[in-house]
Simulated scan of single mutants.
Amino acid sequence: MRCGYFEDGRCGSCTELRTPYDAQVAAKVEHCRRVLGDHPGLAWLPPVTSRPSGFRNKAKMAVGGTAERPTLGILDPHGHGTDLRTCGLYSPRMQALLPALADLVGRAGLTPYDVPSRRGELKHLLVTESPDGEHLVRFVLRSSEALPRLRKHLPALLAARPDVVVVSANLQPEHKAVLEGPEEVVLTERSTLRVAVNDIALHLGPQSFFQTNTEVAAALYRQAAAWADEVAPTDVLDLYCGVGGFALHLAAPGRRVLGVEVSDQAVASATTTAAELGLRDVAFLAGDATTPPDSAADLVVVNPPRRGLGPELCAWLERSPARTLIYSSCRAESLARDLAALPSYVAERARLLDMFPQTGHYEVAVLLRRR
């Protein structure tokens, strides 16, 4: 992938851009195998590759410049905006939407937040795209002061861009490196974006977590479902379930599935999808995944954040009756630490999924069985 932003030094986010894609994937596999260390009998399946460009379903754009001429992209070391609207990681549809959003910023007088002076209202513009080309747009604001202006000018955008189906404002008043705040104000009739993954339409709310690469996420869920079907569990516990990607793909006749997620919004979205699919044996619980409910699950799926499971959850898994564990990790170092804290389980199969081309990051799924 060629990128003018990278070549002229305006953006260095794609750290592996000069490395041929096949070599990127090979290096990731080698890194993951080296970090995980010696696991006798662990079989590595062929890696799942991605489109090297246009694969991101999310644009997380810091807003700089002025309301009349905003920049959508990143901030330079001095806190000033660098515009990246035509970034090659975004689809052509998302690239085409960004100028309309920048125009709305000007018409609504949403003054970009200036980090050095700590003045302004609009901090970030967050866009999520579904495979069908629909979009969820979030404006991260310092306060509710600009909401009346945003509401006034939003109908013109929605009329011109029917692909924009959900719009919200997130309020983040603090001056610190936190992307969003806890308060979300939905400004459209629809509150969720439908994202088709395999044959399941997931519902994404404004604050819902979802994998950055929809096509590779679909492969990840298919792999987990295939492993689950091999062991044919009666009860499945999905920890850090998000909007239900794993739980809903693992549903099967005669199989009970429970997903646990701290976000009430994500649980509501997952519950909606389960109801639409008529899945009566799939349920979701809002709670802390690090302290799971009592469960008789014979299969547990975990998809923790980069920090991993931690000692308390690993100890809980050691005590649990689960015979099988499927671990999806975005950081090999924390995965290796957790595997060492799970001596009752043997890692049998692993597969790297290249969720993040042009970078050194990746996802890896591991199938573990009780000794």
Rank of each mutant, 00 (worst) to 15 (best):
D229G: 12
E230R: 11
V231A: 04
V231E: 06
A232L: 12
A232T: 09
P233H: 15
T234F: 04
V236Y: 01
L237H: 15
L239H: 07
Y240K: 01
C241S: 15
C241V: 04
G242T: 07
G244P: 10
F246H: 09
A247S: 14
A247D: 05
A247W: 08
L248F: 08
L248V: 02
L248I: 06
L248N: 06
H249Y: 05
H249A: 02
L250G: 11
L250V: 07
A251L: 02
P253K: 15
G254T: 10
G254Q: 12
G254E: 08
G254S: 12
V257H: 14
L258F: 00
V260T: 06
E261R: 13
E261G: 11
E261L: 14
V262M: 14
V262W: 03
S263W: 11
S263M: 14
D264E: 14
Q265P: 01
V267T: 12
A268E: 13
S269L: 00
S269F: 02
A270W: 08
T271S: 13
T271W: 11
T272V: 08
T273E: 09
A274T: 05
A275R: 13
E276C: 02
E276K: 11
L277Q: 15
G278Y: 05
L279E: 10
R280K: 09
R280C: 07
R280T: 10
D281Q: 10
A283R: 15
A283Y: 05
L285V: 13
A289Y: 00
A289V: 00
T290D: 05
P293S: 08
P293E: 11
S295A: 03
S295D: 06
S295K: 07
A296K: 11
A297P: 00
A297M: 02
L299M: 09
L299A: 13
L299K: 12
V301L: 11
V302E: 10
V302G: 06
V302L: 13
V302P: 07
N303K: 04
P304R: 01
P304S: 01
P305E: 04
P305G: 01
P305L: 00
R307Y: 04
G308V: 08
G308L: 07
E312P: 01
E312A: 13
C314N: 13
A315N: 07
W316N: 07
L317Y: 07
L317P: 06
E318L: 00
E318V: 02
R319C: 07
R319A: 13
S320T: 01
P321F: 04
P321Y: 04
A322N: 05
A322T: 05
R323C: 07
T324S: 14
T324N: 14
L325D: 12
I326C: 05
I326V: 14
Y327D: 07
Y327C: 05
S329D: 11
S329R: 15
S329L: 03
C330H: 10
R331D: 12
A332G: 06
